[in-house]
Design a protein around this nucleic acid. Structure first.
Length: 574
DNA sequence: GCCGTTTTCGGCCCGACTGTTTTCAGTCG
């Protein structure tokens, strides 16, 4: 069984256990194990064989057994046992907002509800009303939840979520002068997709007023909840926005509380407890005495921790490393000096080369690596030999005219099914850099796809591996690859790995960056721009790089023009 | 189910809001 399937099974087991009324801590153990596997780059079957699986934090005897069975026997006894107890469609019902395992179990047992469709029908027949703990409101909310589930798959791209959040922040600030407001949650952690937007506001006296304003935002579709300090709305776009108001002195603690993921926060509270403190959104307390903190950094410092940037608060090992004060200085937006992976109207971009150049200069960049599609990408207007020559001539002309800006001549070459690049060596040689990417034949087996990419990495002309997993967020699954082998090969062959900053890709996955860095891999943060506007996606990529613990030194396009030129030419002699 | 310098049992984070309740359970974050 492949890793993705195993992770999915662990999550399903956890959900079914909840329905079954299992010990919540046992449920958490399964969810935690799924998360651990998600961020483990090493090959699972190897981990099973060597017995290293049980060394992973959070994976003990039972989970080792369960995972081993899935790896070796391609089945899961605990999952099958649970599936006997509940119909398959019931798990889907747990996605309905406002409906949890307890209520759902009652619906299953009392009304024989098997799936979302039957539940919707039962609501419309008013059959929920007679049940203990259910009333008219609950029934209406379930119906609304079903409608929302159908309409919106419930996740949103990072760029859209930030644009929406900024819009709401501006609106609230316009209505309430001098408002202290911050975005929290997964958005502040720059997760690649977002479920909802969390906003945190400091106010000592106008909480209710602010919440009233919030409920009246023009884009709202529905007010889901509203109390004196907390409210939720859903916008017409389908995205949910949660607002929380705290007193000014509580703000730093609340910001910590509403930024870290569950695991990070749990660990932080546990650490507070070790120090004899209690930590919640209102403060850090010793008994009833507040430990005064003005900033988030003060809160971490009070727990003898180095400040942990929001991007890192995912509940991996950041707290242990912060305790040793060994969190590196992360890359920042202004470190970027130029961008690679840029398309123009020579292939499937919408703007001219010159327009792309002008926009890059306007953004304060010093260089740009032009890489239109290669000839196999006929759907994208890939370049044949003649057009390559013409484009190079145009680039040389632009370079002559522009002061302090340089365009590198490159190509995004398709990695063909057999792993070869898309041109003869004679042509490949003419480029200053080559990004090798997979754009077709996604459904190969894991070993075939891995071999294909390994061969491309070993090609002496490849300098950058483009969008490594091929995923399109919320649209297309990644293809199966052996991440560890590819990382090793990239390090060995001095091929940089791209952090594709296009909000639909954000690929390679940030979870593996730290591992790749440790293996000696270097990176490019590339916009994969198909328009002048797309160039600005680069800065999304910077946050993803930060999530992967990368520093300026790890990213090639933080270097000066001279440094990058040298980097690109240094492999020519191979 | 996991974990352990309070170690093999007994913890495992904590509070707001809703809707159903007559004092609280369920859900969510």
């Amino acid at each position: 069984m492949e890793k993705n399937q195993i992770i999915e099974n662990l999550n399903t087991i956890a959900q079914l256990m909840e329905l079954d009324g299992e010990n919540p801590f046992k449920v958490r153990a399964f969810l935690n194990a799924a998360r651990v596997l998600e961020s483990e780059a090493r090959d699972l079957s190897t981990l099973v064989k060597t017995g290293e699986l049980s060394n992973l934090q959070g994976i003990g005897k039972s989970l080792t057994e369960a995972i081993t069975e899935m790896v070796q026997k391609n089945k899961s006894t605990p999952l099958m046992e649970l599936q006997k107890k509940f119909p398959a469609g019931l798990v889907e019902c747990l996605k309905i907002s406002g409906l949890g395992p307890k209520k759902l179990k009652i619906l299953y047992q009392e009304l024989g509800i098997n799936n979302v469709g039957e539940l919707e029908y039962a609501c419309k027949e008013n059959r929920l009303l007679g049940l203990k703990g259910f009333g008219l409101k609950t029934q209406e909310n379930v119906l609304k939840g079903i409608a929302a589930l159908k309409k919106f798959q419930g996740r949103f791209h990072l760029d859209m979520a930030w644009a929406t959040a900024n819009q709401i922040v501006s609106y609230l600030k316009a209505q309430h002068k001098g408002l202290q407001i911050e975005v929290g949650g997964s958005l502040r952690r720059w997760r690649e997709t977002i479920g909802d937007i969390d906003l945190l506001i400091a106010s000592d006296s106008s909480a209710e007023k602010i919440i009233r304003t919030f409920q009246k935002i023009p884009e709202r579709e529905a007010v889901l909840a509203a109390g004196p300090t907390k409210a939720s709305i859903r916008l017409q776009s389908g995205i949910q926005v949660d607002l929380r108001v705290v007193r000014a002195e509580e703000f730093p603690y609340a910001l910590v509380y509403f930024t870290g993921n569950k695991i990070h926060n749990t660990a932080l509270r546990a650490r507070a407890k070790d120090f004899g403190y209690k930590l919640n959104e209102y403060g850090l307390f010793k008994g009833t005495k507040l430990i005064p903190c003005k900033t988030e950094a003060d809160v971490y410092a009070a727990l003898e921790l180095q400040y942990i940037p929001p991007e890192l608060r995912e509940g991996f090992d950041e707290i242990e490393i912060a305790a040793e004060h060994k969190i590196p200085k992360l890359i920042e937006a202004e470190d970027i000096q130029g961008v690679f992976h840029v398309h123009s109207d020579w292939s499937d971009g919408i703007n001219t080369l010159q327009a792309m150049q002008q926009e890059a200069m306007r953004l304060g960049l010093r260089y740009m690596g032009q890489s239109d599609h290669s000839q196999s990408a006929t759907y994208a207007g890939g370049l044949d030999e003649t057009r390559i020559k013409s484009q190079m001539t145009e680039i040389e002309g632009l370079n002559k005219k522009a002061k302090n800006f340089h365009i590198f001549k490159g190509i995004e070459s398709d990695i063909l099914a057999d792993g070869s690049l898309d041109y003869t060596p004679k042509i490949l040689k003419q480029f200053e850099f080559i990004i090798a990417s997979v754009h077709s034949r996604f459904k190969m087996t894991k070993s075939q796809m891995t071999e294909r990419i390994l061969k491309a990495i070993q090609n002496p002309y490849t300098r950058i591996l483009g969008h490594m997993t091929g995923r399109l967020l919320l649209a297309r699954e990644e293809y199966e690859i052996d991440t560890e082998k590819i990382i090793e090969a990239a390090a060995k062959n001095r091929v940089a790995i791209e952090i594709n900053a296009n909000p639909h890709r954000l690929d390679m996955d940030w979870r593996f960056l730290k591992k790749a860095k440790a293996a000696g891999v270097k990176f490019f943060i590339n916009p994969d721009a198909h328009s002048t506007a797309g160039l600005s996606d680069t800065w999304l990529g910077v946050h993803l790089a930060r999530k992967g613990w990368l520093s300026k030194e790890d990213v090639i396009n933080t270097g000066t023009l001279a440094v990058v030129a040298k980097y690109l030419s240094s492999k020519e002699s191979l």
